[in-house]
Every structure is written in C-alpha cells, then in structure tokens.
Design a protein around this nucleic acid. Structure first.
Lengths: 216, 216
DNA sequence: GCTTCACTTGAATCGTGGTTCACATGTTGA
DNA sequence: TCAACATGTGAACCACGATTCAAGTGAAGC
C-alpha cells in the first residue's frame, strides 16, 4: 500500500484551504462580490481554478466558509466588548460601538458580506451570518430589557431596527462621506441606535462617552 | 410620404409600454427579482421577447422605468401623508407610518426594488430610488429639526438610520413574522424610528397614536 | 527506481439569460 | 390596392463565469 496521507501533507492541505479563503476575503475586500470569482481567487491563492474544487464543492461553499470565519470573528469581538462593560446596557452600547468601529475598518468587505447585491445562492450563507450577529445583539437587548433598562417592546423588531441602523448608517450609500471621521460616525450612530431601542437621549450620550475608545 | 405615426398608434404604443412595465412590476411582485426576466415579462405583457427591446434599450432601462414609477408613487404618498399633519414632527411621523403601511402591502415588490440581491446594473436605478425616498425623509427631518423638535445631529446619518430601521424592520429576514399584525408592526416601527431620531419615548408614543389609521 | 495513488492543472464544457436580427406582419397615405 | 415604412417575432447568438475532466505532476511506500 504505497500511499497514505502524511501529517506533512495534511498540514499543507489545510494551509492551502486557508489560503483560498484568505484569497477570497482579499478579493471581496478589494473589489466587492464582483471580484469574488473562482479564477481570480485561485490566482490570488497561487493555484489553478480547478484546484479550488478539491477544497470546496462549489463557490457557494467557499463563500459560506469565508462568512463563517467572519461570523466567528465578529461574534468574538462583540462578546469581548460586552464582557468588559460594567452592566447590561453598557455592554449593549459597547457591542454596538465595537461593531461599528470594526465595520468601518473594512467597509467593503462587510458590505459584500451583508448587503451587496449578490447571487441567490449566497443568500443562505449570508442569512446565517446576519442571523448570528442578530442573535448576539438580541441577547444583549434581552439582558438589558430584563433589568428594566429598556422599555417593553417587540424584541425581534428592536433587533431588526438596530441592525438596520448599523447597516444603513455604516454601509449605506451616504456612508462613504465618513472617511476621516470614523470616530464621530461610530459615536453618532451608537447614540442613534441606543435611542432607537428606547434609551433616553441624555442617558444614551453618557453611555456613548463612557465607552469611549472602542478600539479592537 | 406613405406613413406617419397616427394618434391612434401612439396611444397603442404608450399603452404597450405601460403594459410592459406593469408586467415587470407583477413579475417582481410575485417572484422577486429572479422572476424579472425579459422573456417571462414579455409573455405576461402578451408580446414576444424581442419586442421589449423596441420599447426599452435594455433590461436595465426597463427596471429603471419601473423604479421611476414606484418612486413617483412613493413620493406622492409620503407628501400626501405629511401634508395632512398639523406640524413638522407629526408630518414626519405620518410619513414614516405611510411608508411602512405601504411597504407591508407589497413587501416582495419593495424588497425587490430596494434590497434584494441583484445584478450590479440595477444598482444605479436602485440608488436613485433610495435617494428619492431618502431626500423626502431628509426634508421632513430638517423641517422638524429647524423647529427644535429634534435634537442637533448629523442629518445624513439620521436619514440613513431612519431608512435602515424601516428597511430592516419591514423587509429584513425577521419581518415575515408580521402577517396579520401589520398595524402593530407599523406602529412599533414608527415608534422606534422616531426614538432613533431623538424624539422622547412618551412624545413618540403620542405621535404614533395621533397618526393612527395610516391608510393609503 | 518503480508503483500507486492523491493532488494539480487549465482548457473545454455548460447553463443561463440578455440581446440581436432577418423575416413577417401591420399601418398609413395615395 | 400598393408603396413605404413601422412594428412585432422568436430563434439564434453571445458573454459570462462556474464547473468538469483527461492528462500531468508529485509524494509514499516498497
């Protein structure tokens, strides 16, 4: 039996798989979904187009893998931000700011992932991505609501609205004007988001300021 | 000179053009953008595929025409709703409710028009559609702000956020649960939207109730 | 070195749906 | 009815990009 997959080879394969996903991320980040094509991605990863299909059954699976990675990273960041806050409402504010700050760091990529007009095949993967983030925010909202720090309201609608504020405010057509004043945008948008959820203006301003730096 | 276009023919042509747009609208309303294809639309309009190109240079132009019609209708409805209100803030609330109520009347169509993953060609037309609506809301926001009924804030961001609340709340993935309780959704979402803009919770509730029926 | 597979290649294939165009049919004014 | 032109037709064409696959390359064990 003259062939068995070696540890060494396994590592190489895994690395290549990761390289393909990284190439896909880079392509989407640079040129949006339009640039997320098999041939260019393969070229970026230094392999032939056909090889991609050794690692992913189809394009949809590749995109799903990329979105999965992004989803994990996003969730981790939100949790980290929330965990560092003193209370539920502050945690919610921190998570919102973290999301906004991260989004502005690579707007094109997030736009591609969450909002860019795309093939219907991607919708399932995209829905999962959105759902993951939505669930995270929903939990934070629920926590704050259970302490009476938010008014009674339809949780699903509130979560959707929050996502809407963030998506449209960060990625929407008027957002491009934000270059250079990311800090401002993050703070203003967080203020708006908190108000939308029912936090009084004055209180919201305080939360925005107390969660100041919003790095990472 | 043995041919000159007759009044009669002109009317027929105009009617057919309108029929094509209507067919496109129906297709999008029933099957989303995926159903908005030349051949099916032509069939719906009772003509051959090639004939569509006598009326529109290309698919993008057809879609643009449809979006233009929708845009006009939407703007008229918003203005009508706002005009009937007693003051600027009430007008804003009325417009928001009108938009939400109309959106729920044909969610699929609006989703196709504003948010559904689509070909990049449509983006220009779609952007114009969004821009029209955004401008309308921006004007209402500005009017209310100039009377001191809204706090100082970045107008563009506020408008984007408002659109985000509406789009995501009405058309987003979690929206489908709304069947049967449209009235509730319209009111809750309007409340959230007004709060996002800086209207205090209590005041916002009053505005939502006073603009009650939100018909048309 | 040699056999046996896994992995890689990239040109050819394929499906999709918008667009074209040679031809057919209508319409007008004489 | 006829000439001249507009309008309608739908099958053929085309571009695009995902996917396939027969042939080439490389690693593992003998």
């Amino acid at each position: 039996m003259p062939y068995r997959r070696t540890e060494n080879v396994s590592r190489r394969l895994a690395a290549r798989r990761a390289a393909i996903i990284a190439a896909a991320r880079a392509a989407a980040s640079e040129g949006g979904l339009a640039a997320l094509q098999i041939e260019p991605v393969a070229a970026k990863a230094g392999i032939a187009a056909g090889t991609v299909y050794r690692y992913f059954p189809g394009k949809a699976d590749l995109v799903a893998a990329l979105l999965g990675e992004m989803s994990d990273a996003e969730m981790a960041a939100l949790r980290r931000a929330a965990a560092a806050a003193p209370g539920p409402l502050s945690a919610l504010a921190a998570a919102i700011m973290a999301f906004a700050a991260r989004a502005l760091r690579d707007r094109r990529l997030l736009y591609a992932a969450i909002a860019e007009p795309a093939d219907a095949e991607l919708n399932a993967a995209r829905a999962a991505f959105r759902q993951t983030i939505a669930a995270e925010f929903a939990a934070l909202i629920a926590a704050a609501a259970s302490r009476g720090q938010l008014p009674e309201q339809d949780a699903g609608l509130a979560t959707a609205a929050l996502l809407g504020v963030l998506i449209e405010g960060l990625l929407g057509p008027q957002a491009p004007a934000a270059a250079g004043r990311e800090r401002d945008v993050v703070q203003s948008l967080t203020l708006i988001a908190l108000r939308a959820l029912g936090v009084a203006d004055a209180r919201a301003r305080g939360l925005v300021i107390s969660n100041q730096p919003a790095s990472t």
